[in-house]
C-alpha cells in the first residue's frame, strides 16, 4: 500500500526541558528533515524520552507543534477491544463517525500488511509480544499523520523479532517525518537516515551521522558495523566523562 504523504519538517528552536530544578536540555535547536527518519541515540536517563514527550506535547505546559502519531515502548493495546478496534482507537476517541467509517478499510489493509490480517477479531492477550507490537505499528500508521514519534518501539522484543519489525517499520513509514528514540546503536543505524547522539547533562545533540544506502540497512554490512563500533565508543566516552 502506498500513501501520498507530504511531510513537513519538524523543528525545535530554543527549547528548554526541565523538571523542577533538574534541567534536561536548554536552548535546544534541532531540525528533523521532512520525510526522513531521524534516530536519537543515547544512554538510559540522558533525556531522549523527555525530548520525545516534549515534541508530543505530553510534558506539563507543553503544546505540540502539529498533529502527530506517537508510539511508546509498550504496545498500549486496550485489552477489552479486539485488534481492529485497537487500530481504529484514534477515530473512536475523536468521535468522528464519518472518518471512522472511511478509516476502517485502511485499518484492515494495514493489519494485513503487518501480517495480522487473520487476527482482526482477536483480543490482544491472544497475541505474542511481537504481534502486539505489529498491531501497535498498524495503529500508529492508521492515524495517518505525516509526523511519527517512536519511543524505543522494539526495545523489549527478542533480537530476531526486533529485526523483522525494524524492516516492517522502515518500509511502512517511508515518506513520513519520523523520530525514533533508541539506546541500540544498531537499531539507529538500520532505521535512521540520520543518527544523532545525545550526551551529557543537560544533554547536547551531536552532529547528524548519515550512513550510506537506503533504510532498512543490512545489519551485517561492514560499514554499518564499523559505525556501530564508533557510536558505542562515543557513548562510552561520554559516560566515563560524566562519572567523577
Amino acid at each position: 500500500m502506498t500513501f501520498v504523504v507530504v511531510s513537513p519538517p519538524l523543528s525545535v528552536r530554543g527549547a528548554r526541558i526541565a523538571f523542577g530544578d533538574r534541567v534536561v536540555a536548554s536552548d535546544l535547536a534541532l531540525e528533523f528533515p521532512a520525510g526522513r527518519t531521524t534516530c536519537l541515540l543515547g544512554r538510559s536517563g540522558v533525556g531522549k524520552t523527555s525530548l520525545l514527550r516534549w515534541l508530543a506535547g505530553l510534558l506539563p505546559g507543553t503544546e505540540r507543534a502539529q498533529p502527530l502519531a506517537y508510539m511508546a515502548q509498550r504496545d498500549l493495546l486496550l485489552p477489552w477491544l479486539d485488534i481492529l478496534g485497537n487500530v481504529l482507537l484514534g477515530y473512536r476517541l475523536r468521535r468522528d463517525a464519518a472518518a471512522l467509517r472511511t478509516a476502517e478499510p485502511r485499518a484492515r489493509a494495514l493489519l494485513a500488511e503487518v501480517g495480522l490480517g487473520d487476527r482482526l477479531g482477536d483480543r490482544p492477550e491472544a497475541l505474542s509480544a511481537g504481534m502486539r507490537q505489529r498491531a501497535a505499528l498498524a495503529r500508529t500508521l492508521c492515524e495517518d499523520r505525516s509526523v511519527v514519534l517512536m519511543d524505543e518501539p522494539f526495545g523489549h522484543l527478542d533480537a530476531v523479532t526486533r529485526l523483522e519489525l525494524q524492516d516492517l517499520a522502515a518500509r511502512l513509514f517511508t515518506g513520513r517525518t519520523v523520530v525514533v528514540v533508541t539506546h541500540d546503536p544498531l537499531e539507529a543505524l538500520r532505521l535512521g537516515h540520520q543518527v544523532r547522539v545525545l550526551t551529557g547533562t543537560p544533554f547536547t545533540v551531536g552532529l547528524p551521522i548519515e550512513p550510506s544506502g537506503p533504510v532498512p540497512r543490512d545489519a551485517s554490512d561492514p560499514e554499518l558495523l564499523g559505525l556501530q563500533g564508533q557510536l558505542i565508543a562515543q557513548l562510552r566516552r561520554t559516560a566515563s566523562g560524566s562519572v567523577p
Binding site: R53, L78, G90
Partner: peptide
C-alpha cells in the same frame, strides 16, 4: 494506566470519550 492517557492525548481524544 498513564500510557493509555498519553496515547489518547496524542490522538486528540475528547475527554468524554
Amino acid at each position: 494506566d498513564p500510557g493509555w492517557l498519553d496515547l489518547a492525548r496524542t490522538m486528540d481524544a475528547k475527554p468524554r470519550a
